Amino acid sequence: MVDTALFTIRDERLSLILTRRKDPPFEGLLALPGGFVHAQEDADAEAAVRRVIRGKIGFDAPYLEQLYTFSGAARDPRGWSVSVVYYALVPWPLLEKNTSVELCPADELPALPFDHHQIVAKAVERLRGKATYSSLPAFLLPGEFTMNDLHRIYQQTIGARLDKASFRHKILEQDIIEEIPSRFRTGAHRPAQLYRLSSKTLTAFERKI
């Protein structure tokens, strides 16, 4: 089977997208989205988890990465099991109108079934570690964003404050974003330039952010 830790940022907090189990064991509990591999339909584990994600939230996650394989006799009361686990990032604006999922802050989770707490701990560790040296947090943003948006999303993902001037310098140095010509966000203050990612694939930095 496959499971996935689906992350988003809501109310400036790193959060997980959970679904309520409809069948035993643990019927009624919130859990990580997951499902069985369909041998006749899924080419591999990634195809299976993409199908599961589409079924839960209605679209493909902008970023998906294999995390780890969890296995053993104690993880499922029905007996020995193995799960290929992925983690994925989804911008909150794409989820706002989805009423079939529930969100919980990653550091305030309810009781979860199986070994899902262990999965979450490993996924958060991977996400926060990788966020310090790559473009990973940017996949939590919609297609257009300001430099302030990017700065906030990095802080919220990493869980630490980042000097704004230093952050801007390092991001521009890495060349992972590009200005969108003639696109600005207007408001009470000076119009803010809008940016987009230069690449749809993950970019690793030469040094930490």
Results as ranks from 00 to 15, higher is better:
residue 29 L to V: 00
residue 68 Y to V: 03
residue 82 V to S: 15
residue 168 R to D: 09
residue 92 W to F: 15
residue 162 L to A: 10
residue 122 K to E: 15
residue 52 V to H: 09
residue 157 T to M: 05
residue 200 K to A: 13
residue 64 L to N: 12
residue 85 V to G: 10
residue 21 R to V: 02
residue 36 F to K: 15
residue 42 D to T: 05
residue 119 I to Q: 15
residue 83 S to W: 00
residue 8 T to F: 07
residue 99 T to L: 03
residue 141 L to S: 11
residue 98 N to C: 10
residue 177 I to L: 13
residue 170 K to D: 13
residue 20 R to L: 01
residue 165 A to W: 03
residue 167 F to L: 11
residue 24 P to T: 10
residue 73 A to L: 05
residue 144 E to H: 10
residue 147 M to S: 10
residue 132 T to V: 00
residue 180 I to C: 08
residue 86 Y to W: 06
residue 82 V to Q: 15
residue 117 H to W: 06
residue 127 L to S: 10
residue 39 A to I: 08
residue 21 R to P: 09
residue 195 Y to E: 07
residue 25 P to F: 08
residue 40 Q to Y: 02
residue 186 T to R: 09
residue 151 H to V: 01
residue 1 M to T: 14
residue 45 A to T: 07
residue 55 G to C: 07
residue 29 L to H: 11
residue 49 V to Q: 04
residue 50 R to L: 04
residue 14 L to N: 12
residue 97 K to E: 05
residue 49 V to F: 09
residue 171 I to W: 01
residue 144 E to A: 14
residue 119 I to R: 15
residue 117 H to S: 11
residue 94 L to K: 05
residue 80 W to E: 15
residue 35 G to L: 05
residue 174 Q to R: 12
residue 94 L to Y: 04
residue 33 P to D: 04
residue 73 A to C: 08
residue 87 Y to D: 12
